[in-house]
Amino acid sequence: MTGQTRDIEILHVEDNESDAFLTRMAFEDSAFKARLHVVVDGEAALNFLFRRDGFEDKPTPDIVLLDLNLPKLDGKQVLEQLKTAPDLRRIPVIILSSSRADQDIADSYDRHANGYITKPDEFGRMRGLVEAIEEFWFSAATLPGQP
């Protein structure tokens, strides 16, 4: 890990309680200094991102982990609104979905997802994913607003 001076803010949009728990445990088990914020539907995700309707005090996330199959608004709709918002479109969005459908993958990239990962179904693989996110997005890559 690089000389990270603050916790990384991660928005995890996930309606499946088991998947959200697995992800949270993987982040807690890693050395990655991240604060994980979880919302359970697409509407709440947009409220968090646009800081409205009870989310006014929430930070702008450094990265979004987004499921596709969500109640209210699906992940594709969230992605589309996020990537067309001038103040938010540069936030990296990683689709984290159980879907392996070619059409879901293509649609996600067409809507400017920065990556597409099929959800790991066991802890070791999820922890490896967390470490890969840290290594690539917060050690190797340079994001806007970071030195």
Rank of each mutant, 00 (worst) to 15 (best):
D102K: 14
A140E: 10
V38C: 09
R111F: 14
G115T: 09
D107P: 01
D104N: 08
A132T: 14
F21K: 13
I95D: 02
N69V: 13
L70W: 05
L36T: 03
R90Q: 13
I91S: 06
E43P: 00
G128T: 11
F48E: 01
A20Q: 07
A85G: 00
L22I: 09
P86Y: 03
S108F: 07
N69Q: 13
F21R: 13
D67I: 04
T5K: 11
N47D: 12
D87N: 08
A113S: 08
F48D: 01
L22K: 03
R52M: 12
F50K: 11
K119M: 13
F138Q: 01
L82N: 01
D19E: 06
E131G: 03
I133N: 10
K76A: 02
R100P: 00
K83N: 02
A34K: 09
V13E: 06
V93R: 01
D121P: 00
T60Q: 15
T2E: 13
L36G: 02
R90E: 13
L73A: 02
R35G: 02
K72H: 10
E43Y: 06
R52D: 05
D7K: 15
S30D: 04
N114P: 02
L49R: 03
M1Y: 13
A106W: 10
F50C: 07
A101T: 01
M1T: 10
I133C: 10
R111W: 11
V93T: 05
D102W: 11
L79Q: 01
L88T: 05
F50P: 00
A26N: 05
